[in-house]
Design a protein around this nucleic acid. Sequence first.
DNA 1: AGCAAATAGTGTACCCGGTCTAAATTTATG
DNA 2: CATAAATTTAGACCGGGTACACTATTTGCT
Lengths: 208, 208
Amino acid sequence: MDERLGLRERKKRESRRRIADIASGLFIERGFDNVTIAEVAEAADVARMTVFNYFPRKEDLFLDRHADLVEDLKRAIRARETGESVVAAVRRHLHELLATQHPLSGARDGSEFFYQIVDASPALVRRTLEHTREMADALTELLETEVGPGMQAAVVANLIATAVTIVPRVAVDKLIAGQPGEQVRREQADVIDQTFDLLEGGIANYGS
Amino acid sequence: MDERLGLRERKKRESRRRIADIASGLFIERGFDNVTIAEVAEAADVARMTVFNYFPRKEDLFLDRHADLVEDLKRAIRARETGESVVAAVRRHLHELLATQHPLSGARDGSEFFYQIVDASPALVRRTLEHTREMADALTELLETEVGPGMQAAVVANLIATAVTIVPRVAVDKLIAGQPGEQVRREQADVIDQTFDLLEGGIANYGS
DNA sequence: AGCAAATAGTGTACCCGGTCTAAATTTATG
DNA sequence: CATAAATTTAGACCGGGTACACTATTTGCT
């Protein structure tokens, strides 16, 4: 940890991590909806209220990496080469996540378990929908300042957020279906490219 | 009502409608989160459990037209001319909703109140997110049978669902901002076209 | 018409997530 | 060491949602 931080701050961070880790363990073991916050609190040896102090919603105990993710995406867009389009930057970013085996790539061994827990819980699924929306809102704001105002920013932002959400899902679904991770990772680069080709080139001819 | 239906069925439908109407009245009057189901039940002169019989979630009391909407959209896609693309069919459908002043067009006088109630309630907002997802899932299934299987169907379906959700929102936001309905309606046709031009032609050059 | 089976509605008790408040404990500061 | 500030705690409370057993009504059948 950071020595410059006071005792108070250090304890807080450690507490937060411990609670989230213990909670995740319970969720993985018994499913999100079959674990109460009271149980999490007891397992973490802390008052029920303390859990809520750190995690305003129960779902946040399991999904607390989303903010970082959006930040990374925004950074990737802002840092794009001059002349490079926004979508192209996002495409590159997803390839990078895949190459580094980032959790969000969806193509990492073990990702399937995480998503299965999520899928099994309506509350968690709802929360991921909110995350996508938050991402779209953040991107809308970014694009409006980066590229210019107008209705287009919102549309583009939402399309990108949709794509970024779908792409890892494709990989996870394959893992759940039993495909070996090695193969999924190999194919996933194409999934990214096909999806973004579609986004870039448009879907005018689909189904005609 | 339909004479072929038995007394039981007729009573059920009327009960359901009455409960939803009374509930909506209360929500509009005092806001969704400030009305309890117990109050709805009392106002409708029915047991609390009965409300849950008809509406498994509280949000469904206010948002119970979504299924129809998806059906209409699916029908529009299925009924497209041979040679017409899926997106083109959806575009036409949205123009039609606008022309007939359908509630979902977003450009109808009074739509702003409805959306303001929704916006003010996190639970209602979440439910609309689920609706978008349900629409995307339904479209994915439809496209897979209509056009052919593959990952593309899911991507296209999600892009369309996103567009269909955003378009009315643009109109509503203008109404909320105080623009006269007449003007919003006039502009809305362009909003539809611009959005679908973007979808059809792709966003390859955005921000480059 | 009358009766039995379905089915809708009711009442009640319960669980759980989430909020509020006030008191107790811990850390920071001079 | 004293005191202020911030965390933690305990406990009461609220409201959505479920389970269940019971009553009332409708329906189909003879």
